[in-house]
Design a protein around this nucleic acid. Structure first.
Length: 428
RNA sequence: GUGGGCGUAGCUCAGCAGGUAGAGCUCCGCGUUGUGGUCGCGGCGGUCGCCGGUUCGAAUCCGGUCGCUCACCCCA
């Protein structure tokens, strides 16, 4: 038996109802929000040099170490399907010399991303994200503006009850000192930690805070906190971000244990969660990445950004699919009708009169055509007669049931007369 | 990769003390030999995931395998 073909594991088809929901989110909600805040849209390639992610995202991250879709192209170059959006945007910023533009440069994007993980609720191998990046300033107001945008997007999308957790990772020597202290602490409790956490004490000790493993959580409850050891300058920056969020009426919880799985984050870090999503509770998140652009070969450039999962936003929002457009006219064909004339009318209604019009395409009975017209919500029905002497065509208002019969198919203005009736709902 | 749950019509599911398959919804037709949304009747549609075993006989029992799903890990 031929094997059944289906969408690859962890991927999905977006069918029309769902597509309408997505289009609405991106075009009606996100687009205007970003435009208002001075963010310009950017689209980067779906795949990039593997080195971009290896360097930018970090070798120690799960994303780079085991989740990338990497392939070798015909030129023997290692390419990778993008697993996240920040590194590519920074690459584009450098490549196009955007540091010469007025700073900060604000960019947003939307599209598919790829990570080879075991799929589960809210986690896919191809998933879609909306993201925003602002480069070239470390003003805390930029952090606040970015976070407010994310919050407003979730609001606009109908996500209720989302929690915003926020923290600061600090920077520089304080962060390095903290990292060393945490490693020492973790090693002292190594036997109580989960296997995974113990194995990456040196690679990425911070992620121990994120473990669900009971023993690990018990250890971490008493672990030293990064937020308490950041520099005075970073603390001041963080406090100002919080003050601005207060001013914006954005609710948040300061979380001293907040960590994220990408290496490039510094200072401000945040995450939106919803309890409507199962184990994958994160709707979106982001933070500051003041060293990333330089790491990618550009000038020292601070930056902040976030990304939110479109599937997760929609799952948390449970929004209704917008209604499809109702056609103004549905053209039905009686047996023996002049099909060419009916087709010509169809195009005339669309192209000359700008109407949404459909024509019978499935060979249904007259009764079936009436049902079909009703089902698609057509306002009017145009019936082409079968040349049995009754009429050439009839226009029926499907709401009122009124019907008028029009003869004179060969007259030059015949289609226009029909269109007139359709537009007027029969009466002229 | 590891563990739990599940795989029967397009969709949602029933059937499982083993006797060769059903419902609802959808779709199409008829009821009005030219006219709809309700209702009634009828029809289309399934190698019961796949392979093997037990049995006179398996969708129903056993083994394997594939797939889906949830969870761990991690993250959008």
């Amino acid at each position: 038996m031929a094997e059944k073909l289906q969408a690859p594991r962890g991927t999905f088809d977006v069918l029309p109802d769902n597509a309408a929901l997505r289009t609405q989110l991106i075009d009606q909600i996100a687009g205007p929000l970003f435009a208002q805040a001075g963010y310009g849209r950017i689209d980067t390639p779906i795949f990039e040099d593997t080195a971009l992610f290896a360097r930018g995202v970090g070798e120690s991250t799960d994303i780079v170490s085991k989740e990338m879709y990497t392939f070798t192209d015909q030129g023997d170059r290692s390419q990778t399907l993008r697993p996240e959006g920040t590194a590519p945007v920074c690459r584009a910023y450098v490549e196009h010399g955007m540091h010469k533009l007025p700073q900060p440069v604000k960019l947003w994007y939307e599209g598919p991303f790829f990570r080879q993980e075991a799929p589960q609720a809210g986690r896919y191998r191809q998933f879609f994200q909306i993201g925003a990046e602002a480069l070239g300033s470390d003003d805390p107001a930029l952090d606040a503006e970015s976070i407010v945008l994310a919050a407003r997007l979730l609001d606009g999308a109908g996500v209720t009850g989302a929690r915003l957790r926020i923290g600061s990772l600090g920077s520089g020597p304080e962060r390095a000192a903290y990292s060393a202290a945490l490693k020492t602490y973790l090693r002292a409790h190594e036997s109580e930690l989960s296997h995974d956490v113990a194995a990456r004490i040196d690679l990425n000790p911070l992620r121990a805070f994120d473990a669900k493993h009971e023993g690990t959580q018990a250890v971490m409850a008493n672990a030293p906190r990064l937020l308490e050891s950041i520099s005075a300058e970073d603390r001041e920056h963080f406090d100002e971000v919080l003050a601005l969020l207060d001013a914006a009426n954005v609710e948040y919880e300061v979380d001293t244990t907040l960590v994220r799985g990408l290496d490039y984050y510094t200072r401000t870090l945040f995450e939106f969660t919803s309890d409507k999503l199962g184990a994958q509770s994160g709707v979106g998140g982001g933070g500051r990445y003041d060293g990333l652009v330089e790491m990618l070969g550009g000038p020292a450039t601070p930056g902040i950004g976030w990304a939110a999962g479109i599937e997760r936003i929609l799952a948390a929002a449970e929004a209704e699919a917008p209604q499809a457009q109702h056609p103004a006219a549905y053209i039905a064909l009686d047996e023996g009708a002049d099909r060419a004339a009916a087709f010509a009318l169809l195009l005339k209604l669309r192209e000359v009169h700008g109407l949404a019009a459909q024509i019978e395409l499935a060979g249904r009975s007259m009764k079936g055509q009436l049902k079909a017209a009703s089902r698609v919500g057509a306002k009017s029905l145009v019936i082409f007669g079968g040349g049995r002497g009754q009429y050439d065509a009839a226009v029926k208002n499907l709401t009122t049931g009124e019907q008028i019969e029009l003869d004179g198919l060969t007259a030059g203005d015949y289609y226009d007369r029909i269109a007139e009736r359709v537009l007027a709902g029969i009466k002229v």
